[in-house]
Write a protein that binds this DNA or RNA. Sequence first.
DNA 1: TTGTAAGCGTTATCAA
DNA 2: TTGATAACGCTTACAA
Lengths: 328, 328
Amino acid sequence: MVTITEIAQALGVTPSTVSRALSGSPRVKEDTRRAVEQKARELGYERNVMASNLRKGRSDIVGIVVPRIHREFFSNVIGGAEAVLNEAGYNLLICQTYERFDAEVKALQTLRNNRVAGVLLSHAIEVQGSAHVKEALSGIPLVQFDRVFPDLPGTKIVSNNFEGAYEATTHLIDQGFRRIGTLAGYMTSEAYVQRLQGYRQALKDHGLEPQGRIEYLDTIVRETGHEAALKALDAGCDALYSAGDFSALGAIDALKERCVHRFGIVGTANESFTALMSPSMSSLALNPYEMGRQAAQAFIAGAPESTIVVPMELIIRESSNPQTIWQK
Amino acid sequence: MVTITEIAQALGVTPSTVSRALSGSPRVKEDTRRAVEQKARELGYERNVMASNLRKGRSDIVGIVVPRIHREFFSNVIGGAEAVLNEAGYNLLICQTYERFDAEVKALQTLRNNRVAGVLLSHAIEVQGSAHVKEALSGIPLVQFDRVFPDLPGTKIVSNNFEGAYEATTHLIDQGFRRIGTLAGYMTSEAYVQRLQGYRQALKDHGLEPQGRIEYLDTIVRETGHEAALKALDAGCDALYSAGDFSALGAIDALKERCVHRFGIVGTANESFTALMSPSMSSLALNPYEMGRQAAQAFIAGAPESTIVVPMELIIRESSNPQTIWQK
DNA sequence: TTGTAAGCGTTATCAA
DNA sequence: TTGATAACGCTTACAA
């Protein structure tokens, strides 16, 4: 492995000069710089990142902590962040928590131990408070996205969940549905809370506040969506706004089992399967690639205390059309 | 940031002793070790990984290079590798190539510059030869998986593509289909070549070698699958074995457009949308989690020159049933 | 069992 | 514009 010392010896200068030349310092004669670059290429020199990082006291790695990379939302956030960060000379170290609290703790410790330059974080569902983050990341720039804790420092990147859910619910009302329930996700997450509030507000503004409980909490996966939808059918619902696509998928399972007529569904996240299903699923699309870009930019810009809202977009497909026939 | 020197001072010993105590060396008195561990906890010490790595000449990061993380195959490989590597004290640095050659080159350079302990690699489709890998990774342990170059050193983890494609094609024959085409992927990749050979062998063994060309190369995404399927229909095919799920999806688009009867399709990879579609898609499942585990274990074991075959499994659903009705 | 000392390769500070 | 020097924090021969 070639070092700057060897380059220096070959050229009869000191390592300091070589270091300056290679890191683009202005305090180097143009001739010298060219000679150094030439020789470095010739010898196949590559900077030892570990040594450089040690000396500089920081690494060029940015950690991103997500529940699971195979969720399209998160892989697209990663794509957006990666595009911006690579451009700026950073590398992305991806950690998955699989929605578990201890995995999130471990991931943050690992990142801290590796002295990462910053952390982009979307919390695991199991996480209820932010103490572990404060402990693990003091001094390390933090940007939260999607699932954020307001009491943590740094930039937060969120969707306009309230407005989005309001629009999705209003769309169901416009389609003629009148008893609209919701599959509401976990109330430990701000995003889900806001979607629930947007849903409620839409009903209220249209004079459709429900009799009886047709809000189903803690539904986020297919199975729980299925169970909740069966209850919703029994409760006389004719539509559901679901705060997630997978729970909406479970609900559709229930509709098909019962061969229901005139029932509307809108999911949230616009996972690609929503377009592939039959009937296809209407869904409130997030904008993950843009959220990833914004998160990375906020980190690079130095993460001032702020909240950036990335708008959602309602994608209308067959599942919110009253004419749609639900059968296997 | 607390250092071993501070711990040493606090205890009246030297940094070497602290270092030994914390890294589990046997050359330390049990009392001393306890005292050191105690004090380290007390002061909130965390090893500076950058310094440690510099001194040891290697990092505890393993790089994994994949085309795209949101493909379920790859995110599951990553999950399997992660499980094994975390257990062994390594961290995973994930790089995406988006199927582009220059991104693969850049990723390998980045990993080399970071002095990663090893690299797990599945090549981008654009990559035609292995010279760039040899150049970038000389001296770094390499494990290839799925898309491998036989001429590179190190362990290769592959699927039994020939046997799998043979089984998938035979299944279509058993279902009564007689003029079976194939959407064959890119012949620059061993995996696709072997699937094509398995398909051909199955036809041959059943006396069904086709008249005319019904092998469609370079089909891997939905659009090209759609185009190829239209040609296959015009060529009188009554079934298709597709070496990928996305191209099979495009083919199904074509079947639905033409409202075809009695047409069988089997895809490859068992992406989760295959189960969600209607009609659902039969698919030749890979075993990505196991492949990731095997790749990581091969790296840890020291990657001898060998090839590990992970078996595929045919998942039979509606698309290969002659009774299935194809309509929108 | 512990201490001494050197050095991993780079960069920052100061002086020339 | 360049050089000398020290230091980042840790590990590891070797010596005691």
